[in-house]
């Protein structure tokens, strides 16, 4: 078992890590949520964080764009590098980090504005022309697989969309920031199975352009979309590696048990 070791899931030595964590521990007040976690996330591809509830998956994900930092009691120790720079010292302006590291949450949250305004919601710093704005909206909605469904009602309220459509709109909104890394916290947990499959296909397509890190409880989904898997339990990494290795007999007993029976006795 590879517990508490620096887990290299970068398959090729020449491949650079988009995210690198060394001896990372996360705390909320006195409570230790993640302990001595070390692993690398390779550039491009989908890395799935799996594990039972309370394993620390979301805490780990929310550390990567410092959303956790908004919580007063949250703190961490260890080294975290994102896109080759330290998470804190490398990004004194957290808004620059968050533009490079987009995030989509479990429950879709669209703003009570039109569909196109939602896509452009984060692009306030740029003085885009009308044509550029329209092109950006179209590109992002196409990338999110939503264009054909909403192209004729871009000025209509986004709140009228179905939950699945709203979640894809949230992904389009994150893509409009042209992030290098996209974090997703159980993006299909609150949508119907059909919408979930659409989002999965979308992530597979996007994985050639950017690094995707996704928290999921759905093992079948992990099997369908992941390139790399990190299995967390009780605040520690149990095992991490390429999906093919994790779903093969080469993985450790605990991983195999979790992947087959969705049960963990850590």
């Amino acid at each position: 078992m590879l517990q508490n070791t620096h887990l290299q899931i970068v398959s090729d030595q020449t491949e650079t890590a988009a995210i690198s964590m060394k001896n990372f521990s996360a705390y909320f007040g006195e409570a230790c949520i993640l302990s001595d976690v070390s692993f690398d996330v390779p550039s491009r591809g989908v890395t799935c964080l799996i594990g039972p509830s309370g394993a620390g998956k979301s805490t780990l994900l929310r550390t990567l764009n410092r959303i956790n930092g908004e919580t007063q009691t949250a703190s961490f120790t260890g080294e975290v590098d994102v896109l080759g720079k330290p998470l804190i010292e490398g990004y004194p302006d957290v808004t620059i980090l968050r533009r490079k590291v987009g995030m989509v949450f479990q429950s879709p949250c669209v703003f009570p504005r039109s569909i196109s305004e939602n896509v452009l919601f984060g692009r306030r710093d740029k003085k885009l022309s009308k044509t550029e704005r329209r092109t950006l909206v179209e590109t992002c909605l196409k990338d999110a697989g939503l264009w054909s469904e909403v192209s004729k009602r871009l000025d209509k309220p986004a709140l009228n969309l179905s939950l699945g459509q709203q979640q894809r709109l949230c992904i389009a909104r994150a893509l409009a920031m042209t992030p290098d890394i996209l974090l997703l916290d159980e993006p299909t947990a609150s949508v119907d199975p059909v919408s979930a499959r659409v989002i999965e296909d979308l992530l597979t397509r996007l994985s050639s352009k950017m690094t995707i890190v996704m928290v999921t409880h759905n093992i079948a989904q992990t099997k369908r979309v992941a390139d790399h898997v990190v299995f967390l339990c009780d605040g520690q990494i149990v095992e991490a590696g390429a999906k093919t290795d994790m779903f093969s007999r080469r993985s450790c007993d605990k991983t195999r048990t979790y992947l087959t029976e969705e049960f963990c006795d850590c």
């Binding site: 808004t95 533009r99 949450f105 703003f111």
Partner: peptide, 23 residues
């Protein structure tokens, strides 16, 4: 206001001032 509004705006890289003005 739902906490998610602010969290989503933060995740999009909006500054505190922009979140106040636009959200």
């Amino acid at each position: 206001l739902p906490k998610s509004y602010r969290e989503n705006a933060q995740a999009l890289g909006l500054s505190q001032g922009e979140i106040i003005r636009h959200v």
